[in-house]
Amino acid sequence: MTALPVPYRVVARWQETPDTRTLRVEPVRERLCPFVPGQFAMVHAFGRGEIPVSASAIPIGGGLGFTVRRVGAVSEGLYEAGPGDTVGLRGPYGTGWELEKAACDDLVVVAGGIGLAPLRPLVRDAVADPEPYGRLNVLVGARTPADLMAHRETGLWRTAYTGVTVDRPGAGWSGDIGFVTALLGRARFDPRATTAFVCGPEPMIRATALRLAALGVPGEHIRVSLERNMRCATGHCGHCQLGPLLLCRDGPVIGWDLAEQLMTVREL
């Protein structure tokens, strides 16, 4: 059966950054199978179309959170959706972060811009159940202080190290200034026993993964989430190919051991 969008009602929304909002949705009747952090849904804006969006909240009580940045017709439609509106969801699709495989390791979570969205449920899980893991590090980079999503929540997470840095501080910012990779030098982790989770713009992912690898983190322990055009999310439309991978099926989260050679071929 080709999946149909399942109606979910928007129950709340909040502004994350000047062009990004998070929608909290609840099933109208039928509900989708549970999501794991890192997986995505095809989110349908009525009359506009569907886009892939990673779950940015997977509350225990049910419902889901999706964070959308206003960049195209569909994301604009979702951005404008408010409480009471209905969106269609298909999913969950793709691979997750696989936090459970990082047991005993130090955790290094690196987010660029709204790349924090798919990482947020992972961090929440690690904060809620820290026992199996070593030290948790959360590193966030953004353009300006206003572009920091979930800034207050980030500050509340109990971690070994939380670093937040911006490119352009503006008045009133007393925090760090610089690119997110600078924070790697301040985080607390043993590279040989670390699993890293990285999401953001592709050059930021490459720079971060290369730095982590140079510090000694094994490639298969650097998990990155990639973005490509997706139409079906079920492996049939061909749009999300990255070399041998169908990112809707084999991704979006893949290991740097696999990603490195693919991300360094131009226009692959």
Binding site: D19, G141, R143, D167, T181, P203, M204, A207
Partner: peptide, 15 residues
């Protein structure tokens, strides 16, 4: 390297 990455303004609306 970090300064060059920042020059790219990666987090801008269109990368």
């Amino acid at each position: 390297t970090q300064a060059r990455m920042r020059l790219l303004d990666l987090y801008a609306p269109h990368g």
